[in-house]
Amino acid sequence: MMRYVWKIAAALLVYYSLVAGLTGEVPRMAILNETIRNIYFHVPMWFTMMALFLVSLIYSLKYLSGSSPDHDLVAAEAARVAMVFGIAGLLTGMLWARFTWGAWWVNDTKLNGSAATMLVYAAYFILRNSVPEKQKRARLSAVYAIFSFSLMIVFIMVLPRLTDSLHPGNGGNPAFGSYDLDSRMRAVFYPAVAGWILVGLWILQIRIRTRKLENTVSI
């Protein structure tokens, strides 16, 4: 029973964010206009990516302490699904930037930081593919995953706060202050984030199970 509950919750939370996100009241702001609703759809992509990279980090640490091949498999697949959500975040962000900041890509710390994060994790897969020996590959990529997760935190959480950024909440104060997101939006935003993270974990679970099936078949 519990095996299905969180999947149903994922569906309901995202459905709720679709309906409430498009029809609910939002603050009226110049330039942003109705695009402020993108917060419900664009930002959860990044949160899901970060949650999945966190899963990848945790399982990399688990691998290093126990050397179980299953932990390596979860770490790799979590990073892979995270990349998909990162691509979605980049593309939705580019479209949003085109119509509010005026260009598909602007020289903003957070934009460049997120792109750099994706490249750092692209290198993770290149590293994985370039080591044929399984145990060596798992150990090397687990160490690299710790490094890349730390870089991600610096690139998208620390650096944008140190300098000026077009993203709200950066350049000093943390995001989601009272000025950025009012309570009506929070009531949609947080369920949207929770829903998308659960959807991400569902996709991750499907990928892990597929890989395990592959492994049993090939033995």
């Binding site: 999947k7 959807v199 569902w202 996709i203 499907i206 199970r209 597929t210 099936l213």
Partner: peptide, 8 residues
């Protein structure tokens, strides 16, 4: 997703 889940 559900179909994939069931197939697996």
């Amino acid at each position: 997703l559900v179909l994939l889940d069931r197939k697996i």
